[in-house]
Design a protein around this nucleic acid. Structure first.
Length: 523
DNA sequence: AAAAAAC
């Protein structure tokens, strides 16, 4: 065993930076060789024994110093990228994709696919989560929206599987919506191009064909699906799908899939976990937001859990300029919306509403405005949903009205504005919705309408906005469950006031609304 | 609290 192998063992997967620690390494190597020479000579010589001890001490000190220097460097890299990690024996982060080839045997063709896709440097979550999964570690990963989580689990899967094999599905990825499953599937296909993996998505056609049943040839490797489809196939007698060959189970948007209650995802997810019964199954849970429930579950059920957090947990991405807009009433929303359209905006824009019915209504209000607007929600047919997504991606639709269906994971290139037409139902939903813009380091903008009715949640959203570095009026942060804060008039700040609205006079502003009596704010 | 998720 040479010095570096020994070092690696002690560092528990630590990598060695030859450039940075070259001098220490040389000194160390020399010391080791001298030491060895002594070890193998006759032990009868006392002098030699004394020398041996000196050399051993030298070696110990040198080793300790090396470890220390190395750890300092690793700490610096983690701090610089805001990587927080909890767990035992955590491997070092990688700083380049090519290290993944040299250190972990990433397929060169995959590396080539990465660079053709313009991906040159790993993002913080990729730097730390990839080595962890490469070491077969189970993990809970939390990283901001648009920070590269999909790639962070896809690369280790492809490396782990090595090459196509006819053993049945060896990797499974679960997503909360069909749109997200389909996007992840596409990403995997693109990433593994030329390697020959059979990447499948569970859709109606594949389910009808019964092609994963007991009599199938098992010529497939990776499966992407929403949970209920899987459960449906698993429940059939005999089961139309076997997951006992699964070696990696990835739960994307994990907090969503842990949602409890009568119609939550949790039971479905439990059935999937149970079906992945192989002795070697490893599990990884990813999301931009993490709730205590999920963390608790992971601590109890995962093997030697490592949790990785990038930046602060449950925070909005900092590349989005966020704004709260008081619109007074329902009618005020529509007026403000028309105002945005009239003033001119840079498409594409995503507009979130709280229910399917509201999505339909808003669509009918806007369809005659002379802009390319469409709507998507779970009550539309899969064909319609697919068409809408592809038209929005291609730029044929400028304004897309949507429900929470599109709140998570969906990666539209270059969404310029996310409009929360209806107030989000929680801070977590807010974080995911506005995360459809400002992705991969690009800038974005999010505007959130609010009315009197939204006051109960205003404070928690205002806190998220403030934490992301956007200004919010102090009184919003001071809101308590029982409103008792007296608001100074100086806090009443008119954002938009358009006298052209005639009879439907509207005041659009950030202020305390109920205690504001400034007539200028009401025209 | 609504949405999503099978046929």
């Amino acid at each position: 065993m040479d010095a570096f192998d020994l070092f690696r063992k002690l560092g528990a997967g630590a990598k060695f930076d030859f450039k940075r620690f070259g001098k220490d390494a040389d000194r160390f190597k020399q010391g080791e060789m001298e030491g060895e020479g002594i070890l193998w000579t006759s032990s009868a010589d006392r002098k030699a024994k004394g020398l041996q001890k000196v050399e051993r001490d030298k070696e110990k000190i040198s080793m300790k110093r090396l470890k220390q220097l190395h750890q300092e460097k690793v700490n610096r890299v983690r701090a610089q990228h805001r990587i927080n990690v909890h767990g035992c024996d955590v491997p070092d982060p990688v700083c380049t994709f090519s290290e993944l080839q040299s250190e972990y045997g990433l397929n060169p063709r995959v590396l080539q696919n990465l660079s053709s896709a313009g991906l040159t440097t790993p993002t913080p979550i990729q730097m730390q989560a990839i080595p962890l999964m490469m070491h077969g570690r189970e993990l809970l990963a939390c990283a901001p929206t648009g920070s590269g989580k999909t790639l962070a689990f896809c690369l280790p899967l492809l490396t782990h599987l090595k090459q196509p094999a006819n053993l049945g599905f060896r990797a499974l990825i679960i997503s909360p919506t069909r749109e997200l499953a389909s996007q992840t599937h596409r990403e995997l296909v693109r990433l593994s191009e030329g390697v020959g993996f059979r990447v499948h998505i569970l859709d109606k056609a594949s389910m009808a064909a019964k092609k994963y049943g007991p009599s199938s040839n098992k010529k497939y490797d990776i499966l992407v699906s929403t949970p209920n489809r899987l459960v449906f196939l698993l429940k059939q007698d005999p089961p139309a799908l076997h997951l006992s060959s699964v070696e990696w189970l990835v739960v994307d948007e994990s907090d969503k899939l842990f949602e409890d209650g009568r119609s939550g995802f949790r039971d479905q997810l439990a059935a999937v976990f149970q079906a992945c019964s192989g002795p070697r199954v490893r599990r990884a849970l990813y999301s931009a937001t993490c709730v205590p429930d999920v963390e608790q579950w992971c601590r109890i059920n995962l093997d030697n859990l490592v949790s990785v957090n990038i930046g602060h947990r449950n925070s909005a991405v900092e590349t989005v300029e966020q704004e709260l807009l008081f619109v007074g009433t329902e009618n005020g929303k529509l007026l403000a919306m028309r105002d945005i359209i009239k003033k001119g905006f840079l498409p594409p824009m995503l507009v979130f509403v709280q229910s399917i019915e509201r999505a339909r209504e808003l669509f009918h209000e806007l369809v005659y405005e002379g802009i390319n607007v469409d709507v998507i929600h779970a009550d539309r047919t899969q064909q319609q949903r697919d068409n809408v997504i592809s038209s929005f991606r291609s730029g044929d639709i400028w304004v897309l009205i949507c429900t929470a269906l599109l709140a998570r994971g969906i990666d539209f290139k270059g969404v310029n504005l996310v409009l929360n037409y209806d107030f989000p139902t929680s801070a977590v939903e807010y974080i995911h919705r506005i995360g459809r813009t400002g992705r991969a380091g690009h800038t974005g903008r999010a505007v959130t309408f609010f009315t009197e009715d939204d006051k109960p949640l205003l404070r928690s959203i205002a806190n998220v906005i403030k934490q992301a570095g956007c200004p919010v009026p102090d009184y919003m942060l001071g809101f308590k469950k029982i409103h008792s804060v007296v608001v100074r008039e100086a806090d009443c700040h008119v954002i938009v006031f358009d006298p052209r609205h005639g009879q439907n006079k509207v005041c659009i502003r950030i202020c305390s609304f109920d205690s504001c009596n400034n007539p200028a704010h009401y025209a």
